[in-house]
């Protein structure tokens, strides 16, 4: 069986690290190859986890959007939430799952802003929903975090 996906990408990164970087002619090329290797490591992680992340994210965001739509029943935002959640992704390809994620996250940004206004006005449901949105953002940010070896400040410089 030939190596696939994340494993193959990892082997390409190893090849760069072990064989190409030692032969690089100058510091600039070494730095570039080091960055490409780090990127390949991240691409390998995404290859393996992207579908899981996108599906899990959708499952977590749906109840939040449904509650927001129920609390804002009759509003334009509520209608758009209901219409979007009623749609199935075109396929299970990452590009289609990503497009669905973009659509739901855009709605969540709008819903979050509206929830904050209601919370500031003293609505208890809004405070609870605001906390639920932040818990979602915390969990999502943690799930998306890349595992990487420490990088140099040169590699992170702007």
């Amino acid at each position: 069986m030939i190596p696939r996906g994340a494993e193959a990408i990892g082997r390409l990164a190893q090849r760069i690290t072990n064989d190409l970087i030692p032969k690089a002619p100058d510091a600039y090329t070494i730095a570039d190859l080091g960055l490409i290797t780090a990127l390949l490591g991240m691409i390998a992680q995404d290859f393996d986890r992207a579908a899981d992340l996108l599906v899990s994210q959708h499952e977590a965001v749906c109840p939040i959007l449904r509650e927001a739509a129920a609390r804002m029943a009759g509003s334009d935002l509520a209608s758009r939430i209901e219409a979007t959640l009623a749609q199935a992704p075109t396929s299970l390809r990452i590009s289609d799952l990503s497009a669905r994620s973009d659509a739901t996250l855009r709605l969540m940004i709008e819903a979050h802003a509206a929830v904050e206004v209601a919370a500031d006005a003293g609505a208890n449901w809004a405070k609870r929903l605001d906390e639920a949105i932040w818990r979602f953002l915390e969990a999502q940010t943690a799930a998306e975090a890349y595992q990487v070896a420490p990088l140099t400040t040169d590699q992170t410089s702007g």
């Binding site: 780090a38 990127l39 991240m42 590699q155 992170t156």
Partner: peptide, 14 residues
């Protein structure tokens, strides 16, 4: 330039 991609992915994440 790979630093643009790396910054875009890893630093955004952090």
């Amino acid at each position: 330039t790979p630093i643009l991609a790396l910054a875009g992915w890893l630093m955004t994440d952090r």
